[in-house]
Structures are given as C-alpha cells and as structure tokens.
Amino acid sequence: MLKIFFGDNPGDNYIFNPDVFFNNTYEDEWITSETSRKMIKDIDGSEVKGPCMIDSPFLGPIPPERLSGGVKTLILMQNDPDYIFNASACGNNCAQWILKLAEQKDITIRLGYIMDFGK
C-alpha cells in the first residue's frame, strides 16, 4: 500500500534528503538486487556491473553514490520502508516504480508536488 503526505514534515522517521541518507546507509546487496538493476537501467540508463561499479552512458564507470537522486530514493524505499522518504527527489519517471514497490510492501512518501502516477 502507498501512503502519500503532501506538504511539510510528516513525522520523526522522515528523511528529507534521501540522496545523502542513501550515501551513508546503502549496502552492496541493495545495488545488485534484480529490482535495483532494473530501476537503475530504466531511470538512469545505467548498467550495474557490481556492487561498487555502475556503467553510466553519460558519466562512464561510477560508484553507487553517483546515481540519480530518484534511483537512490527508490532503492531506499525498496530496502528501508520504515522511513518516510521525500519523493520530491524523484521525477515522474519514478512514479511507476513507486507503485510497483508499494504492491510488495507498505510505503509512505512525502511529496511537495503532484506526481503523475498515470491512470
């Protein structure tokens, strides 16, 4: 199930900056999971070569810390759903992934704009 807060801080377990939170908390297996590989390919157009190396068509070989804020937020939602993440770090291209993740587990996000989830 997906729950969405609009506006201000929704609680004590709210992560305002998922980009920085990801950089300090991710684990190698988060990067190499099948779902993460698919999200990274779809959102960033990059291919996971290993837990510490991603092949970006724009940047060349990069570490996970250089992934987009949207992908980082999705990976956090997938692996650490006890937090409320600021999904305003995600673009509309992440909406379908948020819905897919919410089919598997309860996810709560905060949005500062109306994301296009389609029909």
Rank of each mutant, 00 (worst) to 15 (best):
M1Q: 13
K3M: 11
K3Y: 13
F6A: 01
G7M: 07
P10D: 01
G11H: 03
Y14W: 13
Y14I: 10
I15A: 09
F16W: 11
N17R: 13
D19S: 07
F21V: 07
T25S: 14
T25I: 06
Y26N: 07
Y26K: 05
Y26H: 12
E27P: 00
E27R: 13
W30E: 13
W30I: 02
W30T: 08
I31D: 03
I31N: 03
T32R: 08
S33N: 14
E34C: 01
R37H: 06
R37E: 10
R37G: 06
K38D: 14
K38S: 15
M39A: 05
D44E: 05
E47D: 12
V48F: 06
K49Q: 10
M53G: 06
I54K: 01
D55E: 15
S56Y: 09
P57R: 05
F58Y: 14
G60R: 01
G60T: 11
P64Q: 05
E65W: 04
E65Q: 15
R66C: 11
S68F: 04
S68I: 04
S68N: 02
V71R: 01
K72H: 00
K72Y: 02
L76F: 02
L76N: 01
N79G: 11
P81M: 05
P81N: 10
D82S: 15
Y83G: 02
I84L: 02
I84M: 03
I84R: 01
A87L: 00
S88N: 02
A89P: 05
C90V: 11
G91A: 07
G91Q: 06
G91H: 10
N92R: 10
N92M: 05
N92P: 01
N93L: 10
A95Y: 06
I98E: 00
L99P: 04
K100G: 01
L101Q: 07
L101G: 09
E103C: 09
E103I: 04
Q104E: 15
K105G: 09
K105S: 15
I107V: 14
R110N: 08
L111W: 05
L111Y: 08
G112H: 07
M115A: 12
F117Y: 15
F117H: 10
G118H: 13
K119M: 12
K119R: 14
